[in-house]
Design a protein around this nucleic acid. Structure first.
Lengths: 232, 232
DNA sequence: TAGTGGTCTAGACCACAGC
DNA sequence: CTGTGGTCTAGACCACTAA
């Protein structure tokens, strides 16, 4: 019972909120009131309330007090794991088939999705599960940010997992959309009109672009799942 | 300079990690060492380190110390806003056109995506932007969890925004996939083979299912964007 | 201006896991 | 055993802002 009093306070308050007993906008007790109620130091109460505020469950305003937050924009924590891990977790054999590889200088015509200057390495390939195409990948790598990529062998190991282990990054942006297979129909082994899930990712390391990747999955072979709690 | 010393400590440590100066597995100074280094109380250091641990940037072990964490599965914070808000933020007029509405008893043939017993309200409709179909929505609402839905008027207001304001929820699960328009081609005003982005969401309130919704967006009208940092 | 949260101090005892 | 993180105390001063 003496263990983690701050967690207990947090849980008690969270229960009032999630059960609906305290509606959005309801003013919750002040830190000093809770301190008296639980017979503990103010810092312990503060720890619980700060955690709730960080989680977005309450809003805190000086002088006014703390209030149950209104539901915000829904946000989900989306996991985008390594494709190899996904396939192997299904018990299937994974391989990466490199289709093309070319280095382009800074003078090359800029490709819209990746504005980095300097030399770039362009790769295309197919992720293969149990001998069947699983996803098509088109990738650009900024060689200034990842010089080791020049010598790396991507004919077996996918560029994604190589980068994950060799190049630190600080920010990424995803775009998730749908498209027809189109020109990727042949390498994916589907018709040109087959619907596909397209995941694009731009990755930076401190303002410097590191890589751009576009992965295209035939609709019946992959989907993304996200679990989440509200107001997070 | 006296402001938020714990944030400063956190930022300093985070910089060492993100810059790569401290590789994964590197042992970072102990709380007592940092306390001496910054000339502050141990609790201030603890606050910074606890935040880093919560964020997944470090791992902490008693007696052993704190260590830079290895990159985990990539996770992104995905925003799934109200469709009405998306459309209006583009400066377009929004409306919801209800196509069908029916209440089914517990004895009705169970629909796979929603295993709740009890009465359900089934709705289909189209989200309209500037007079053009934007998305098709199919929704089931558990009337036991949201009794007010029986009287609600969904011919103008979308069920999603009504639920968001009237029914608290505790957990949701998303599935994001691609599909062809198929039988939704007519209401969406596209061909049957048009690729579409499909977002499914199951929502619970404390073990009890609240609602299931399937939204289908023609590929050229919508995509999801997520920004994130590593190891979060 | 008074009340609230924001932050920090300088200790303390404990649990746990390496050594 | 010993060092580390985990947690808590009983204060303190400050910043902000709503009344």
């Amino acid at each position: 019972m003496t263990r983690r009093l701050d967690q207990q306070i947090r849980a008690d308050l969270e229960d009032q909120i999630r059960s609906g007993a305290w509606a959005p906008g309801h003013r919750i007790p002040t830190e000093r009131e809770l301190m008296a109620q639980y017979g503990c130091a103010r810092m312990t109460v503060n720890k619980a309330l700060s955690a709730l505020a960080t989680a977005g469950l309450i809003e805190r305003r000086r002088k006014a007090g703390s209030f149950v937050a209104r539901p915000h924009v829904q946000t989900a924590v989306l996991e985008i794991p390594d494709i190899a891990a996904v396939i192997e977790s299904r018990g299937e054999a994974y391989s990466f088939r490199l289709l093309s590889r070319s280095a382009t200088g800074a003078a090359a015509p800029p490709e819209a999705p990746f504005e980095a200057g300097g030399e770039r390495l362009a790769l295309t390939g197919v992720h293969v599960a149990s001998g069947e195409p699983f996803a098509h990948e088109h990738r650009l790598i900024a060689l200034s940010a990842a010089p080791g990529a020049r010598q790396a062998d991507f004919s077996a190991r996918s560029p994604g997992s190589w980068l994950l282990e060799n190049v630190p990054w600080t920010l990424a942006r995803h775009r998730i959309s749908a498209r027809a297979a189109g020109e990727l129909a042949a390498p994916l082994g589907v018709t040109r009109t087959a619907p596909c899930l397209q995941v694009e990712r731009w990755t930076w390391r401190r303002e410097d672009p590191v890589t751009y990747v576009r992965q295209v999955f035939p609709a019946d072979r992959y989907d993304l799942v996200a679990e989440f709690s509200p107001r997070a």
